[in-house]
Nucleic acid binder design. Structure first.
Lengths: 204, 204
DNA sequence: GCCATAATTAACCAAATGGTTAACAAAGGT
DNA sequence: ACCTTTGTTAACCATTTGGTTAATTATGGC
């Protein structure tokens, strides 16, 4: 008898399917049947491997976040200069998101619907330590190398400049009249343009 | 007999309730029963005034968008200088969103789930005309008053800097360790700080 | 070959959910 | 007073949906 699914590894296929469906439709919009179909298996098999939608979602969410957070933590804790950190932050953030363009809206959306629960799932008690980074900013400000700016605003700015275009892609594409390729190109440019923009803004 | 609901005007109450519930939970997450409860009426009465969830959602969505778009269109088409436009854009955008902090995630989320449908609902064929604004930017660039920057990037930057903090509020509050009041204060500051930041970035 | 265990499925179930019906109450015109 | 139209409700219905069951099919050790 020919096997129904060429490659085995049902659990893998389920995870891949769940990732895809949850990220595309969110927790509320995703259907267990969709995930089963996407994985090419029976719905009951989903519950054989993952006892509930809740649990499957949590698995995916923590997996996704566990992929992003260490990257950022290590960057912010490194010994690079402020300029280098901003450079790398923009480059890395835009690169990762370019490869997973729907991650931001997925994450922010779930975070918005249940803030405390999701924050807890993301950082198991251990929030990222921004102290080193904020101290670095404050030092540059005090020593007069850059204009006065609060770390809070600078961080918001960095994130907004890198992430927003992906969140707003459908809107931006429409009003700016750009297609997928032009968008991709623009994102590529922003890897270098954003650090430049930020430094031009804060340099004295 | 005492009336169940002090004030009449069921339709008004339904719209208010639907706005609240849809914006908080999105189309997929909202329940018709939630809306009925929120409005203090029977679920059947919802369908008396609005024949389906789809139609009620559409009513709310177009209402909400119809509130925002003209404001922006008129700003971009006005005769203000580039600096003044950026100033007003940031001030107005941040003001409006501060009063409806969940609008952005609601809009971008629905836009993400059905881009073409929602874009069509937002702009009934008449996309906002950015030509005047982009020409203004290009003129300032050519005349050497500001650094070379593509209108596409500048617009993305303006929007990202103004809107992102609201989209990322739960995340930002957590990692930056700020409470609702501090957040509100920061947004107030950004009304002036963002135009300054942007102009510092592009001025030669 | 035989058996225990793991993988997989079709059929089923109960709760949730969008939507409908039919009856009833209010309001307003005549 | 009477009738028509509008507003409102409780009960009901059909479908969707997350989840379960019981039976069937590999799989691997012996």
């Amino acid at each position: 008898m020919a096997k129904r699914n060429k490659d085995t590894g049902a659990e893998e296929k389920i995870l891949a399917a769940a990732r895809k469906v949850f990220i595309a439709k969110g927790m509320a919009g995703a259907r267990m049947q969709d995930i089963a179909d996407e994985a090419g298996i029976n719905k009951a098999l989903l519950h054989y491997y993952f006892k509930s939608k809740e649990q499957l979602f949590e698995t995916i969410f923590t997996e996704v976040m566990g992929n992003l957070i260490p990257r950022i933590k290590s960057l912010l804790l490194s010994d690079l200069s402020l300029y280098e950190k901003i450079e790398q932050f923009c480059d890395q953030y835009i690169s990762v998101i370019s490869q997973n363009p729907y991650l931001p809206i997925f994450i922010l959306n779930e975070l918005h619907k249940q803030p405390s629960v999701m924050i807890a799932k993301m950082f198991g008690g251990g929030l990222p330590d921004l102290h080193k980074f904020t101290a670095q900013i404050e030092k540059e400000v005090k020593s007069g190398k850059i204009k006065p700016i609060s770390p809070v605003h600078l961080i918001m700015n960095m994130m907004g400049l890198c992430i927003f275009p992906f969140l707003g892609k459908p809107l931006l594409s429409a009003i700016l009249g750009i297609d997928a390729l032009q968008f991709q190109l623009a994102m590529e440019q922003r890897k270098k343009a954003m650090p430049q923009f930020i430094f031009d803004a804060i340099r004295k």
